[in-house]
């Protein structure tokens, strides 16, 4: 008897109203109002298992990229290299295979991003600072433009570039890339500029600054994180763009890494998967770094409102 009471009292904390003398089986009490911990643990466990499956599905192709790049005898199947070397990297790190294409990518993406940011800042200023009926329709138009599947127009773009004599021209390609990224860039820039308090600018106006001076001296310095975010966004898109330079640039000496990697794959891919992977890693690292950078910047850009006080 004493034993069963202690048993019952031991069960008490788990919320089961055990009758004295009955060894209550571990059945859940009828309809517990709160989620009992075993169920929650079960959900966490099930969710964890599902997450592991997803993790495997995503990590395996990525692992191939890394493992093949250090495997001198890489195939299309993921294998842990028996004798990992950096030989693949050494082989592809030549001027014509890696440095020239990466430099081309840098020039094309950098100039595209620079032009886009410059033009977008100018455009965002009236959109953000003046209340005009024009703004609304303009913003809806560029939003519409940012949604259009640009890849669909590459054939007519090619024809247009032939007519304009811009085919195989790096500046022409840059201008096209800038124009296609402008809708999104203007949209983002306008939102960033909206978060710069107008009162600071008004002070500049009182002191006799023109609107462009106010933009350059007051607004732009205050929205540097926003500028960086837009710059990186456009840069990353241009860096990863394969189709546009593939269609518009014909001379291999002008082609960016995205196109040269494809040409390389077309001619050597079947044999040199290790080199292809090494090249891919080298080409992808800048984008991954920039992504991490933008994550930090985007977090900081909302602290701007603090500059009004004090």
């Amino acid at each position: 008897m004493t034993e069963s009471t202690t048993q019952a009292s031991r069960r008490e904390p788990s919320g089961v109203a055990a009758m004295p003398g009955t060894v209550a089986p571990p059945v859940p009490s009828p309809a517990p109002p709160q989620l009992s911990s075993p169920t929650r643990k079960g959900t966490t466990l099930a969710a964890g298992a599902a997450l592991v499956i997803v993790a495997v599905a995503f990590v395996v192709p990525l692992a191939w990229l890394l493992l093949a790049s250090i495997n001198p005898s890489a195939t299309v199947s993921v294998t842990v290299p028996t004798s990992p070397t950096l030989q693949n990297y050494r082989t592809v790190l030549t001027p014509e295979l890696t440095f020239t294409p990466l430099l081309n990518s840098l020039v094309i993406s950098g100039t595209t991003a620079l032009i886009t940011v410059l033009v977008a800042v100018l455009a965002a200023y009236p959109l953000s600072r003046y209340k005009m009926r024009f703004n609304r329709s303009f913003l809806y138009t560029i939003l519409f433009g940012s949604c259009l599947p640009i890849t669909a127009v590459m054939v007519p773009v090619y024809a247009l570039f032939v007519t304009l004599g811009l085919l195989d021209s790096v500046p022409g390609t840059i201008l096209f890339l800038a124009a296609t990224s402008l809708p999104m860039a203007v949209w983002m820039m306008k939102n960033f500029m909206d978060s710069v308090p107008i009162s600071l600018e008004e002070a500049a106006w009182v002191d006799g600054a023109s609107s462009m001076q106010a933009l350059r001296r007051v607004v732009v310095p205050l929205m540097r994180p926003g500028l960086a975010v837009v710059f990186i966004f456009v840069f990353t898109q241009a860096w990863g763009n394969f189709f546009v330079p593939f269609v518009l640039l014909l001379d291999p000496a002008k082609q960016p890494a995205a196109v040269s990697i494809y040409t390389f794959f077309g001619t050597n891919g079947a044999i040199a998967y290790g080199q292809l992977a090494a090249f891919s890693v080298l080409y992808s690292v800048p984008v991954l770094v920039l992504y991490l950078l933008v994550q930090r910047l985007a977090g900081g850009s909302f602290a701007l409102a603090g500059s009004v006080k004090g």
Binding site: S284, V287, L288, Y291
Partner: peptide, 8 residues
């Protein structure tokens, strides 16, 4: 997987 360049 999303950040990687599309061709990679």
């Amino acid at each position: 997987a999303w950040v990687l360049p599309e061709i990679v």
